[in-house]
């Protein structure tokens, strides 16, 4: 790549009109200022996409919370506010050291810049370390996303369910929602009582099991639908674990679908965590280049852009912290 890349710079008559101030000026830019402003605008546009990337998740969060506020105020108590607060402070301080790194890079202070970058890297590692303990604890007590929030149906219980070998969580409730309303209501109230013997759900009628696929394809007869027996046999062969609808949390006040809170919690903090990891790789790269002496007060754009990225990571966390940890 570099061999092809470097050829234009050797082409006579192409680059002579302007003397490059730094060895890192690309051939198609006329001046270092044009290059700096271009990369800066490019970075801001990229950060814009990052904002929209997280923005969709924030939208998801808002909708879930607007429709199930009590779910959020209930489940939020399982998050550790102190650890979250410490992590917020760690990220803010690492943002300061990142801003300081840019400051020193602009002034051409190589050693101070490198120290600041190292501090930022330690901050990022500290953040992830604390995050690891949080995740580790939650997964240990089964505060999970999806079906694993609930107890698995062991072999005996699965047999008791009958011939229905499907992943059976709360999905049957939907089938029943279409059924008799009053029967539904009483059945539903019973599900919130922890001492009701497992499993409470009736086996799903065969027609319902395939209705989803059918409705998406069309009315019966127009397209062949995979037989119910075949689906069951495949699931069993794949050795899938099936789950009951009994949560690990022994709490009578547990709202329905509490697993959704943890789903969105893991999705948002997880995606943020991935960005922290990417940020660490980037800071590491900056340290490497800084050590080689690539940056000075004429050319420091990578540090600047890295700083912008790192601040966006901080910015997202600034919203995640109150939205998850500080629900009254």
């Amino acid at each position: 790549m570099t061999a092809i890349d470097s050829k234009p710079e050797e082409t006579p008559g192409l680059d002579e009109s302007h003397g490059s101030d730094t060895p890192f000026q690309a051939h198609h830019f006329d001046t270092p200022i044009q290059q700096y402003e271009s990369v800066k605008l490019g970075m801001w546009l990229f950060l814009g996409t990052e904002i929209l990337f997280f923005g969709a998740l924030f939208a998801l969060y808002t909708i879930l919370r607007a429709n199930d506020p009590e779910l959020f105020s209930y489940a939020s108590q399982y998050l550790n506010t102190i650890l979250g607060g410490i992590n917020t402070a760690v990220l803010i301080l690492s943002s300061l050291s990142m801003a300081a790194a840019v400051h020193f890079a602009q002034r051409g202070r190589k050693t101070l810049m490198l120290i600041s970058l190292w501090l930022t890297l330690f901050g990022a590692a500290g953040f992830l370390g604390i995050k690891y303990f949080e995740y580790e604890h939650k997964i240990h007590v089964n505060l999970n996303w999806g079906p694993s929030f609930y107890y698995p149906v062991d072999a005996a219980e699965a047999a008791a369910v009958g011939e229905d070998g499907q992943v059976s969580t709360v999905q049957d409730e939907n089938a029943r929602a279409a059924a008799d309303e009053s029967a539904l209501l009483s059945a539903e109230r019973s599900t919130s009582l922890p001492d009701v013997p497992e499993p409470r759900l009736a086996p799903m009628p065969p027609t319902d099991a395939v209705s989803m696929a059918q409705s998406a394809i069309g009315p019966g007869g127009l397209s062949a639908v995979k037989p119910e027996e075949k689906i069951k046999a495949e699931r069993a062969a794949a050795g899938e674990v099936t789950y009951s609808d009994k949560p690990h949390l022994e709490d009578q006040d547990l709202p329905v679908n509490t697993h959704r809170f943890f789903a969105i919690y893991y999705a948002m903090t997880g995606l943020h965590g991935i960005h922290v990891v990417v940020g660490m790789v980037m800071i590491g790269w900056l340290i490497l280049r800084g050590t080689k002496g690539h940056f000075d007060n004429r050319y420091y754009a990578p540090v600047d852009l890295g700083g912008l990225y790192w601040h966006v990571v901080d910015l997202v966390w600034i919203f995640l912290f109150p939205l998850f940890y500080l629900i009254h």
Partner: peptide
């Protein structure tokens, strides 16, 4: 020496 050529300090 104490100021960048481009950008704001």
């Amino acid at each position: 020496d104490t100021h960048p050529i481009v950008g704001h300090l």
